[in-house]
Design a protein around this nucleic acid. Sequence first.
DNA 1: CGCCACATTGAAGGCAGTCAAAGGTGGTGG
DNA 2: CCACCACCTTTGACTGCCTTCAATGTGGCG
Lengths: 237, 237
Amino acid sequence: MTEKREILKESPLFSGLSDSETRQIESIAITKRYRKGELIFSEGDKATGFFVNLSGQIKVYKLSADGREQILHIICPKESFAEAALFGGSTYPAFAESLTQTQVLYFPKDRFLGLIRDNPQLSLNMIGGLSLWLRRFVDLVEELSLKDVSARVAKYLLDVSIRSGRKGEEGIVFELEVSKIQLASRLGTISETLSRVFRKLRDQEIIRVEGKKIIVLNKEGLEEISSGITFGSGPNR
Amino acid sequence: MTEKREILKESPLFSGLSDSETRQIESIAITKRYRKGELIFSEGDKATGFFVNLSGQIKVYKLSADGREQILHIICPKESFAEAALFGGSTYPAFAESLTQTQVLYFPKDRFLGLIRDNPQLSLNMIGGLSLWLRRFVDLVEELSLKDVSARVAKYLLDVSIRSGRKGEEGIVFELEVSKIQLASRLGTISETLSRVFRKLRDQEIIRVEGKKIIVLNKEGLEEISSGITFGSGPNR
DNA sequence: CGCCACATTGAAGGCAGTCAAAGGTGGTGG
DNA sequence: CCACCACCTTTGACTGCCTTCAATGTGGCG
């Protein structure tokens, strides 16, 4: 009960609210649990509510006609998702599936809309959250459309190294938080291609790869590749 | 003055507001005019306000390191844009440029944030608008990542035919509202490729192309291609 | 008439996806 | 403890979609 409230208060969606307001919000939330690999909702499902992740990882993704997958976002604890499904469209526009054992808070649409109508601060928080999503998607479009896979990988590595990297002997050290298959899908590619890019970066001594552990040896090199200037060692380009 | 107010009231952002509220909003707006091809803001510019299009067309787009362009959206009259730049990030995340002679209303950030704080209905409208943008971007990501150019073109033609098509003798008739270069950029490709796709669709007698005028001869064919099932007439696939 | 931007078509090449197979890794149960 | 299996990862060969480069066609406008 009380851990729930703590996560709630730390979620940007509910920041700046009074204790009584937080309790009110908590009172309409339903805790749901999923095992690894369970479907939380499907594209086209009637949108009956939205979610806040309490623990575990969830992927939100689209599928193509022939089964290829594009991950839109991997939801970490304290993040909310599917908020936008409450407004406008009446169905979820994508799939959501747990990547690990997962615990979420579920907020039924009707009751939450009631709350938001009477709570200006909650409205503003919601606006802030939607704006953040928007920014992420603009970034994603930019990457998919204007950058090659190497640049996308480099940018991703830089982002994670900033977010959760520690300074080690050889360089910045961190762990990939998802499998390489999931990472490939998030970057709009497939594991084989991702593997080849890692190989190239390794050969150029820009990174070291040990399973899920990554060591950034040459941050500037990564930044250059990330910016879109294709790296030329081979005969190509 | 009064035409301004009419456009305001028809914009979803300002629907359901009282006359006095509308007047208040109008009072902080500044009318700006642009000639064809003028830059309205650049990526990275400090975001000092957002816009509502009164007349003309505006493209919002990203640029790659080597100058390639991806149009995120073409803004039609009554639409607002750059709202999200007011919240969270302090800079515009993309470029905006007029495609025609254009007239916009500009809402300075500070004054507008003051209004929104005291106006729950305006907040809700803003949430609705942001949600719509989100949905559009999810669609765009899906198209760029999971569909080939033919499918994107087909989907675009279907969308426009629904939005502004008229039933003609041979099929649904409409006009492309932008040049083929701009259309290509919106669809994440280049004019040569777009031209080739039009040729293929023409050869299959799915559409007829006469300059900017398009006639859809076989809607079902378009829908099939749009869904991602690649069309096979040649030896490929 | 000639300029210029837009549009179309052809030829060639590259990036990345598909198919296939081998090498790793972790978990489970005998 | 180790053998087995499933799944992830890596590597290689090949294919294809789309871009690039280049040239020609076309339509509006000074």
